[in-house]
């Protein structure tokens, strides 16, 4: 049974945004701090650090989760995707990101990466949600600019566009 000493640095092999990576962390290190400070992936934003605000939401094995309530060592062998995974370095924005831009779905932008990571999983599982379901999904995120109207509009526009494309095919 692996018992990790509190002061020992653990080697963490995992897949970060589609690329095999290795980092080290003490047992107490949160995944949010590990991603930002060890792996340099600063798209994972740290807000409340107790699971309420949703800014730090990333996908672990494809499921949106709070990185501030996850230990870095727990992602060993797993697949972690942050907002950086959505559009590659050379690519334009994804349709969802473009809709956020078009519909003013981000103001200061602090909550945006978490919302994008939740929404992208949510729309994969549920491609044609109602606005009520979208608002329910967004209840897991706080936007202190209170710009929810733009966020909801951006997500609804993405759904409509995807549905239109699906119907045309």
């Amino acid at each position: 049974m692996p018992k990790l000493n509190q002061d020992s640095l653990q080697k963490i092999d995992f897949t970060l945004n589609g690329v095999a990576e290795t980092g080290t962390a003490e047992p107490r290190m949160l995944l949010s701090d590990f991603l930002r400070n060890v792996m340099g992936v600063t798209g994972c934003h740290v807000g409340c650090e107790h699971g309420v605000c949703g800014a730090c939401t990333v996908q672990i094995d494809g499921k949106a989760q709070r990185s501030c309530l996850t230990l870095a060592v727990q992602v060993a062998g797993r697949k972690v995707d942050t907002v950086e995974s959505l559009a590659g370095r050379e690519n334009p924005l994804t349709d969802l990101q473009q809709a956020f831009k078009t519909h003013h779905g981000l103001q200061c932008g602090y909550c945006t990466p978490g919302i994008l990571m939740s929404t992208s999983e949510f729309l994969d599982r549920n491609p044609n949600p109602t606005e009520e379901e979208v608002r329910d999904m967004l209840s897991g995120h706080l936007c202190r600019c209170t710009g929810y109207a733009g966020i909801v509009n951006a997500i609804m526009a993405t759904i409509e566009e995807r549905q239109g494309k699906a119907a045309a095919e």
């Binding site: 018992k3 509190q6 047992p27």
Partner: peptide, 13 residues
Amino acid sequence: MKPRKFDLVRAES
């Protein structure tokens, strides 16, 4: 807002 140090047992059973 970070946990204090602790030993971690990653149980497999």
